[in-house]
Amino acid sequence: MAHEEVSVRNYVVVFSALLVLTALTVAVYQVHLGAWNLVVAVVIATMKAALVVVVFMHMAHEARFNALVFLGSLLFAGIFLAYTLNDTERRMEVDEYHGALVDPETGDWAYGVAEQLSAIADRESAARQEEAREDDLEALEGAAPVAGEVEEEGAHDERPDEDEPDGDDADSET
């Protein structure tokens, strides 16, 4: 607005700098730097991006708040990338602090195998106790009307009740 216009010459100089940087990226690609290849490519691209944003997009003369909006979006894109890779890149790693493996599927802590097994065993025994208690209650409720019938039913139900009611069918299907 109030500022003086950038001269055509300056725009052309910046464009030439962008061309030089492009040539540099291609040159680096031919050299084979291994793991540094990505770092150098991104650094050069960021230098080019900075030239475009500051000179072509007039960021230097832009209202501070508008610059904040744009740079803020870059910050959040960075957070998005960093946090996601910090998760996905740690799958199957042993987390020393938690003494656990990072679950490859979910990224949650998968605690030591022994602990996992004992946790599973605890859960199963708790479920078995609960089932037994329910059976007892059923037996008690049934005992009131006809004693003989209930005993028969109770004996009959014992085996299927250990699995889910449809457990046998599902197993044979799979």
Binding site: T25, V26, Y29, H32, G34, V42, A45, V52, F56
Partner: peptide, 19 residues
């Protein structure tokens, strides 16, 4: 238009120039 250019500045090395 500059933003479209900006995106390409990153896409070019990331897609075409992997060692």
């Amino acid at each position: 238009w500059h933003l479209v250019d900006l995106i390409w500045i990153y896409l070019f090395p990331l897609l075409y120039l992997i060692d």
